[in-house]
Design a binder for these strands. Structure first.
Length: 276
DNA sequence: CAGCGTGTTGAGGA
DNA sequence: TTCCTCAACACGCT
């Protein structure tokens, strides 16, 4: 479930895995659809013999910096997963989509049951001009992300506050699960128009966004694997969700039943009593 | 069999 | 121009 904490967890794990400084010696592509600005031939040629220098995150994008000023930009969308594994390790072939073979008998494997992920290749700095990345806003972990910033972005908007904070051009990195959690902690009804919020509300959203995302990163995200060794070990944060998926359960704050509605087509959970 | 979904884009319409 | 809903992407799960 890649939202910001899951993507950060993956990057932290990969950056500490032994993947860095390895040379890509082969690339196998099983789903061509994932390549958005290249053909398999061009993609492979672009990556072959380059070393992976480091990986950074922008919003929910992973940016792989390679030798010769090359970058690989990956978005996991709904189901994408990246695992650094030994070549010999058992592979559940069903959802294996791309393999990057390295010169140390390891392989970076991309799994994606729904094949929604995206892979773009760019020369260094060109990726910053790429359409999808230029649109990104500040993410909640940046120090300049404040209630004031949020207010300047959306205080004139008639959109539901949940819709506004899911829009990556307003805030980058918040997804459906964390949006519900953040609005619950901020005691704001997800359907309220952004224009009706006070500066205090925006301050709360900024405060809890930082708090909850940091906490989730600390616990390894929600359902993303921990990447230590096996792909089945899941993140621990899902156990700490307060409202998301809690339909019919008592609110941890007031005991009222959590209800589920749709906002902008997305399943939305909230407490009707706490979130006015 | 129908409905849902962690993300995003684009079409069509009010 | 703004903002909403719906569909699409492709598949697994309930």
């Amino acid at each position: 479930m890649p939202e910001l904490p899951e993507v950060q967890t993956i990057i932290n794990t990969l950056n500490n895995s032994g993947l860095l400084q390895q040379r890509i010696i082969d690339v196998k592509i099983y789903k061509v659809k994932l390549l958005k600005n290249s053909t398999p031939l061009i993609f492979k040629k672009f990556l072959l013999n380059e070393k992976i220098i480091n990986i950074e995150r922008k919003g929910k994008f992973l940016i792989f910096h390679l030798t010769h000023q090359k970058t690989l930009v990956v978005h996991l969308r709904m189901e994408g997963k990246l695992f650094y594994e030994t070549i010999k390790s058992f592979v559940p072939k069903a959802h294996l989509r791309i393999e990057f073979f390295l010169n140390n008998k390891h392989v970076l494997r991309y799994y994606d049951s729904r094949i929604f992920g995206t892979f773009h290749i760019y020369k260094e700095h060109q990726h910053l001009k790429a359409h999808q990345l230029t649109k990104l806003a500040l993410d909640p972990l940046e120090s300049t992300f404040t209630g004031k910033y949020l207010s300047s972005k959306i205080s004139n908007s008639n959109q539901a506050i949940k819709t506004a904070i899911l829009d990556q051009t307003n805030v980058s990195g918040i997804g459906n699960i964390y949006a519900d959690e953040i609005l619950f902690l901020s005691k704001i009804n997800p359907t309220r128009k952004a224009s009706t919020l006070t500066i205090k509300d925006f301050n709360n959203i900024a405060k809890y966004a930082k708090k909850i995302l940091l906490k989730s990163i600390k616990y390894g995200g929600t359902t993303i694997a921990s990447y230590k060794s096996d792909a089945n070990h899941t993140g621990q944060f899902q156990k700490m969700l307060l409202v998301h998926t809690k339909k019919g359960k008592p609110c941890v704050c007031c005991g009222s039943k959590i209800i589920k509605i749709k906002v902008n087509g997305r399943g939305t959970y909230y407490c009707p009593r706490c979130q006015k």
